[in-house]
Amino acid sequence: MRRSSFPAVLAAAAVVLAALTVLLAACGGGQNTAGSEPKKLVVGLVPSQEAENLDAKAKPLADLLSEKLGVPVEVFVGSDYTAVIEGMGAGQVDIGFLNPKGYVTAKEKGYADVLLKAVRNGSDTYRAQIVVAHDSPIRAIADLKGKKIAYVDPQSTSGYVYPVVLLKKNGIDPEKDVTMVEAGGHDKTILALLRGDVDAAFSFDDARTIVQKADPAVMDKTRILAYTDPIPNDTVSVRTNLPNEWKDKIKQAFLDIAQDEKGKQVIRDIYNHEGYAPAQDSDFDVVREADRLLNQ
């Protein structure tokens, strides 16, 4: 697959993890050991929008969690999904808002257990979409052959995994037939499309709303080419070696916050969550199957 900005993940892994450890130590991470009572909790998030905006929106959630759990809670906004996953593996991040693919990866590594799935629009599933310009000659997925496509991150379920599987199911070889451009955020894939940098964009349904402030006419300038199969919503996950008592406390804290009017607004502001539903690992077997198809 031709990627014009794909990171050298393996070569940079040691550097990223070292930098992550320094960053999280500065915000209080790394104080908890396996099976011990946490002295402080760190919540890890991945930006689907500008990181500084997410950091500010997440601070009220940290305050609510701290009030309910009785320990200080701080926020870490990772540069990408891998930063939060590796932070959990290193014991530096205790609670992760992991996307489905990110959770599956973290679970396979033994880093995370899932507690809850987000609810949006009354559902605990969502879809990915492929977006093109309104006046684009691209009318079918087959027309994407030879085109340039913006994606979010290789660990993004809706911004990479499911749309690429959809391409493969429609006869597009992602290794040979398209050029993939890593944008780093769902808003950024749409913005790249609006600038004319790419011919199509992968994102969650409907990420166009988060760029309406930047371009109020985005809905008129673009259209949805295709949707993917349903995907389990993103998760509230915790590091595996957190004591079970604390896993239960954290789960209940999120459920309580989602029932409170102030709390509802806070979680809506961060990722547009309406509430949370109980989750189990088997809920994400469909994501594992998509990952298998991706790597065939």
Rank of each mutant, 00 (worst) to 15 (best):
A200D: 08
I231R: 00
Q155S: 11
T105M: 10
I172E: 09
F254M: 04
T125H: 10
V178N: 01
I85N: 02
K262M: 11
K68M: 10
A13F: 09
A51I: 04
R208C: 11
L10T: 15
D215F: 01
R208S: 06
L64F: 06
D153F: 03
K249V: 05
E289P: 01
T209G: 14
A19S: 15
A214S: 12
A26C: 12
G171I: 03
K169E: 15
E37T: 08
P47W: 04
P216Y: 10
K249P: 03
A12D: 03
P232V: 05
M219G: 13
A12P: 00
D206H: 12
T179E: 12
L166Q: 06
A150K: 01
E274N: 06
K213S: 13
A90K: 06
N121M: 13
K68D: 04
V77T: 06
A226H: 10
V132C: 13
P154I: 15
A192G: 15
Q265H: 11
G29P: 04
V236D: 02
S158Y: 05
L225M: 13
K188H: 00
L116F: 11
P232Y: 01
T189Q: 03
R223F: 07
L54N: 07
T189L: 00
K168L: 06
R2I: 13
F254A: 05
P216M: 14
V42M: 00
F284N: 10
Q92Y: 10
I210P: 02
Q212I: 11
Y151A: 07
R2A: 13
A58C: 13
D143A: 01
